[in-house]
């Protein structure tokens, strides 16, 4: 497998984590209840922290410093799926996104923990513990809230329906899909997607939410290769506003 392929994989993971962590941090100080404000902020920090871990791996492969990579690229240069760049919306959407994304992330990290590339396996092994808590958090919230009352149920179902096409975009195949599978890096996006569908439908059923037929949903692809919604560039401009006052300065 080529280094180019490995970078392709690491970039999409890192960019997903950074953009979703950034988005979720918008709730810090404005959450629906104090304790949840704190918990959600921790998970946003975990995401930004793990993006840093992957940018560091990329730096070791010859890419630029993590700060430079994260704070100076334009939208077309980002490899995150469109799902993570969508605005935070109401709490129901942020929760559903957290649930759908972190289930995929947990499977991804579990698979990468077995990766023959030692450095990648190490990072994945470490991070899967914190993502396990994220998934516990998400599962509990989805189950508690979705059957609490009609208002909550409706909100959760609507968010789920809206989120699913984007969520399937997480698994947009890489141009190196076969290389990964052949080299045993991880079993590939299709394999994550299959396991993911199994895991989330179990929880969603317990929560009393309805999962539409999978073949009725069209996945939103494009993010992995620079095609983004109108939301990403403004997010990046905001994120880099201070950094770009002087990118060479030590902040």
């Amino acid at each position: 497998m080529t280094e180019e392929a490995l970078k392709d994989l690491l970039y999409k993971i890192a960019d997903d984590q950074l953009i979703l962590g950034h988005r979720n941090s918008e709730w810090t100080g404005m959450g629906p209840l104090l304790e949840e404000d704190i918990a959600f902020s921790s998970m946003a920090q975990d995401k930004v922290g793990s993006s840093l871990a992957f940018y560091t791996l990329l730096h070791d492969l010859g890419e630029q410093e993590p700060d430079t990579v994260a704070f100076t690229r334009n939208a077309e240069q980002f490899h995150n799926c469109q799902f993570v760049e969508l605005p935070i919306g109401e709490y129901n959407f942020s929760l559903i996104r957290h649930f759908l994304f972190d289930h995929a992330e947990l499977i991804r990290f579990q698979m990468l923990a077995e990766c023959p590339i030692e450095e990648v396996a190490q990072v994945a092994k470490k991070l899967k513990g914190e993502v396990k808590y994220h998934v516990m958090h998400a599962n509990t919230w989805i189950k508690q809230l979705s059957n609490a009352n009609e208002e909550a149920h409706t909100r959760m179902q609507e968010s789920l329906n809206y989120a699913l096409p984007y969520a399937l975009g997480i698994f947009e195949p890489s141009q190196f899909e076969n290389d990964f599978i052949e080299a045993g890096i991880y079993p590939g996006e299709k394999a994550i997607e299959t396991k993911w569908k199994e895991n989330i439908s179990k929880i969603l059923t317990e929560a009393g939410l309805t999962l539409p037929a999978w073949d009725s949903i069209e996945a939103v692809y494009g993010g992995r290769y620079g095609k983004h919604t109108e939301h990403l560039q403004p997010l990046l401009s905001e994120m880099t506003e201070v950094f770009n006052v002087d990118p060479t300065a030590d902040w």
């Binding site: 704190i38 918990a39 921790s42 808590y133 509990t140 919230w141 508690q144």
Partner: peptide
């Protein structure tokens, strides 16, 4: 609920 109490307790 106690499950949520745990989720909150861990981060606080």
């Amino acid at each position: 609920t106690e499950e949520m109490a745990f989720l909150f307790a861990k981060e606080q």
